[in-house]
């Protein structure tokens, strides 16, 4: 039986597809990393090995601007992903565990709305709206706009996960006199964790990458990485952008390594669907 169950988890070709997926994901990044060491101005012609673009990122003329931009992007992505994941988790419980109610399809449409409106329309419309209500553009306007469009990206994976969890779990907990809060905290939340992690990660990367909306709602003196990069590209992409991108990769790998060691402490071996603290 043990042998059979191991087989059932394995499909021929799935591992090669995963490998292919990883190659496709990382091959372009290898190019980015390689050409960040290019000694010439070009990103397409190799001109010898050099660290000059890394020096440029840290000490060059635009160093402060890019550092501030990176900080804004990361902090906004962190805050927007956190806020939208919390909002989306609550909403998914209300939608999936809230029984039938008339406003359900409308609520679903509302949650998906940020996905459906073309970005440029959201951008212009939001700018008109913010100006009309006198919301001074700056860090806060970017954050609010990001939380709004991150919600569906966080919601959909969480909702899909929740649909796969049988209602009997919370019911059993409540039969044992757990309050609704306790049923959520100790039963539902751990079971939902992988969905929440997935939603959080998607919200994070979508916020980190946004250009069009940010470009319209940012105020004077604030840049995020995408607006800085799109602006810089007007003069042609220089390898300093590649060096910056490679550094971002290193930062993210740093986070992965840390969270790996943290999560290894937290996980008890063997549990089915055990919570991953990431």
């Amino acid at each position: 039986m043990a042998l059979a169950s191991r087989n059932i988890r394995k499909y021929p070709g799935f591992f090669s597809m995963t490998l292919l997926c990883m190659v496709l994901l990382y091959a372009p990044l290898a190019v980015v990393a390689a050409y960040s060491f290019n000694d010439s101005l070009s990103i397409t012609r190799w001109g010898g090995f050099s660290f000059r673009w890394y020096l440029d990122v840290f000490f060059g003329l635009e160093a402060d601007k890019f550092r501030d931009a990176a900080w804004n992007s990361l902090s906004i992505a962190f805050l927007a992903a956190t806020a939208s994941t919390i909002i989306a988790t609550a909403a998914s419980i209300g939608m999936v565990r809230g029984g039938e109610f008339r406003a359900k399809p409308a609520s679903f449409a509302l949650i998906s709305l940020p996905l459906m409106v073309p970005e440029i329309v959201t951008a212009v419309a939001t700018l008109i709206f913010f100006s009309a209500i006198g919301f001074v553009r700056g860090y806060a306007t970017i954050l609010v706009a990001h939380i709004v469009f991150c919600i569906p990206f966080a919601y959909l994976p969480i909702e899909a996960r929740l649909r796969g969890i049988e209602g009997t779990f919370e019911e059993a907990a409540q039969d044992l006199y757990a309050s609704r809060g306790q049923a959520f905290r100790f039963v539902l939340l751990p079971l939902m964790a992988p969905g929440i992690v997935a939603g959080y990660l998607l919200a994070f990367i979508i916020s980190l990458d946004d250009f069009i909306i940010t470009n319209f709602v940012k105020g004077a003196g604030i840049e995020t990485l995408p607006t800085a990069i799109f602006g810089a590209v007007k003069q042609g992409i220089k390898p300093n952008i590649l060096a910056l991108s490679t550094l971002m990769l290193l930062i993210s790998i740093g986070f992965v390594t840390i969270s790996y060691f943290v999560s290894r402490k937290g996980v008890k071996p063997g549990g089915h669907g055990a919570p991953e603290t990431t």
Partner: peptide, 24 residues
């Protein structure tokens, strides 16, 4: 000095027309 940036003439025009006039 505070500086804000745009990426095309038309984007700047759209932004000013959508309410950014008066802040620069």
């Amino acid at each position: 000095i505070t500086m804000d940036t745009y990426d095309s003439n038309e984007a700047m025009l759209a932004s000013l027309k959508a309410g950014a006039l008066g802040s620069y």
